[in-house]
């Protein structure tokens, strides 16, 4: 017979701290959505209603999947923390605006279920959820995920695909201003660079995003591209082009700093950002995929637990 009686619910006291600063997951997600809004609006302005269709469908599927999973998994917290909306929107940002409905639905469902819910929901996932969905779609439906092939009617082109297939001379004429304003083919939200920079700056100023990972990511991309450019200016695109083309800015401010899958220490965050940024250019230069950003972040996230072992030595030990 047990000598201990179960604790009485009346005497249960929650763990400290008892005073709350008011910051919640829901609040953080709401601010992230607010920071993503300019890019979403720009996407609709540049790509028209198809972009809105993709974003709406992706968000709806993400929320429905999360609700169904939470129902099936007893003990999972409620789904009103808006995280599913953020995942759905970020996944939509990586798709071409012409993505068929089944691609959007399958990818969004994969992001939420395989990227987040199987690991127990918010905070458990070792990989950034939207990127899991992107990787599955990219490898399963290459044609539908290819920005140039799926957007034949558009007059824009994908600068990274041109760099990959035609060489740096083909992209020498592209002005940085066009890249900033989203006049390029790519993920429908990922290419709205100016809007994403504004959103990222908003999160940084509001203190909702620590600057280590975004800045280290951009620095890693820039420095690696600079090294390649310095070694052979004729064979490589200039570093600023690598920063502004494709999804580097989206990756730096919104994908790489994913709460559950990025490191927490100061030094680990910087190492993680530099590594991911460096891998972006390495994959763009050597890999078969035009844009290395999603894969680079996934690879860096595999290293997160190891990088996180870099810790300050505890006082009085060793």
């Amino acid at each position: 017979m047990s000598t201990f009686s179960p604790p009485s619910p009346l005497l249960t006291v929650s763990a400290p701290p008892h005073a709350h600063c008011g910051r919640t997951t829901r609040g953080l997600m709401a601010e992230t959505l607010f920071a993503l809004a300019p890019a979403a609006i720009m996407a609709v302005l540049v790509f028209g209603l198809p972009a809105l269709r993709v974003m709406a469908l992706s968000c709806a599927v993400a929320v429905i999947c999360e609700t169904l999973c939470a129902r099936a998994m007893a003990g999972t917290p409620a789904v009103d923390d808006l995280n599913a909306l953020v995942i759905g929107l970020l996944f939509a940002f990586l798709l071409p605006a012409s993505a068929p409905w089944w691609l959007v639905a399958a990818g969004s469902a994969t992001s939420v279920v395989l990227g987040k819910m199987v690991f127990g929901g918010l905070g458990g996932s070792p990989l950034c959820a939207p990127l899991v969905g992107w990787a599955v779609c990219k490898l399963s439906w290459k044609g539908a995920m290819d920005y140039d092939l799926s957007m034949l009617s558009s007059s824009l082109t994908s600068p990274l695909a041109q760099l990959k297939h035609l060489g740096p001379q083909a992209v020498a004429g592209i002005s940085l201003q066009d890249l900033l304003l989203g006049q390029q083919l790519g993920g429908l939200g990922a290419v709205q660079v100016a809007a994403l920079l504004a959103g990222g700056a908003y999160l940084l100023i509001r203190g909702r995003l620590r600057p280590h990972i975004p800045l280290a990511f951009l620095a890693g991309t820039f420095l690696t591209a600079l090294i390649y450019f310095y070694l052979d200016p004729a064979a490589c695109a200039p570093p600023l082009f690598h920063l502004l083309a494709g999804g580097a800015v989206l990756g730096a401010f919104f994908l790489a700093p994913d709460c559950s899958s990025s490191p927490v220490g100061h030094v680990p965050m910087i190492v993680f950002g530099l590594l991911a940024g460096c891998l972006v250019v390495v994959i763009r230069v050597y890999g078969v995929y035009p844009d290395g950003v999603p894969f680079a972040i996934l690879l860096a996230e595999l290293l997160t637990p190891l990088v996180d072992r870099i810790r300050p030595r505890p006082l009085g030990v060793g």
Partner: peptide, 21 residues
């Protein structure tokens, strides 16, 4: 099971290197 899922996701990430050499 979660180990197998994780192995699959890691394999997805390693597709980044495919075709490099």
């Amino acid at each position: 099971p979660i180990g197998l899922i994780l192995a699959g996701l890691m394999s997805l990430a390693f597709f980044a290197f495919s075709g490099m050499i």
